[in-house]
């Protein structure tokens, strides 16, 4: 397996967005691309990442291989890569180590690292194709701000989506608060748009702590999509451009 990405910053941002939820994960390499699925230890949330092969500058994978990686170790290695460096990832069939090569844009600096891989027994979950009742698209910076603002007030947030608005409400020890967003009427910048597609109104409660973990993915995409259905896990998606891939989180709801 060998793959080369022009910008190491993408991998660095992906890692930042998942390393607080997951400690070890299998990076699954196949001819289609690189993917990862992992749950947090309490099985409340799940991360699903896909990088399509066509998003790479070069991608070669003769047969599927899983690279079991400790994310703290990978973070240490990626700290040695500049944001604008290209990154080449290599692994052989034995699958006991992975090789990382970082090259500066001017090609005058080359650094190489080898990471020991581990055997990870991970449970793969089948996520059914779902027709969600409510889909909200909003700026990821707005999502991050709401989660961090409301997170200081309480542990859970009630998300209510209607045709007219999406409302985030918190009820905590010191008091309560809410933020309500209406779909944008005037659109200056596509990245500032709030869009709501609704089959039926949804009103659900989630842990703010997890929503805040997911907000770490905000640097990956200008917009975020929240998909909700009653008594079903919330899906939060950050897309890396059109053809590149995505990072999705799933969060189990609080239920009666």
């Amino acid at each position: 397996f060998e793959a080369r990405l022009t910008q190491a910053s993408l991998i660095k941002k992906i890692l930042e967005a998942i390393k607080d939820l997951v400690t070890d994960a299998n990076f699954d390499c196949s001819p289609e691309g690189l993917s990862l699925q992992a749950m947090d230890s309490s099985h409340v949330s799940l991360v699903s990442m896909v990088l399509h092969a066509q998003g790479f500058e070069m991608f070669r994978c003769q047969r599927a291989v899983s690279l079991g990686i400790n994310l703290a170790s990978l973070t240490k290695i990626l700290k040695c890569a500049g944001n604008d460096d290209s990154i080449t990832l290599r692994a052989d069939e034995k699958g006991d180590k992975a090789e990382f090569v970082f090259e500066s844009q001017s090609q005058d600096r080359l650094s190489e690292f080898e990471l020991k891989l581990m055997d990870i027994d991970s449970e793969h979950l089948g996520i059914p194709d779902t027709k969600y009742s409510a889909i909200v698209e909003m700026p990821s910076s707005e999502y991050r701000r709401i989660c961090s603002d409301l997170g200081v007030m309480g542990d859970t947030v009630r998300i209510s989506v209607s045709k007219e608005s999406v409302k985030f409400q918190v009820d905590g020890d010191i008091g309560k608060g809410s933020v309500c967003l209406h779909p944008s009427s005037v659109v200056d910048k596509p990245t500032e748009v709030v869009k709501i597609s609704l089959e039926e109104p949804v009103d659900m409660i989630f842990s703010i702590r997890y929503l805040n973990y997911f907000a770490k993915a905000a640097p990956l995409s200008d917009t975020v999509t929240l998909s909700l259905s009653k008594d079903f896990p919330l899906q939060i998606e950050f897309k890396f451009g059109e053809q590149m891939g995505y990072l999705r989180y799933y969060l189990a709801p609080k239920i009666d």
Partner: peptide
């Protein structure tokens, strides 16, 4: 009082 569910009750293990 609402309690936290887990994903295992919604998604099947492959």
């Amino acid at each position: 009082m609402k309690s936290q569910s887990t994903l295992l009750s919604f998604f099947e293990t492959k």
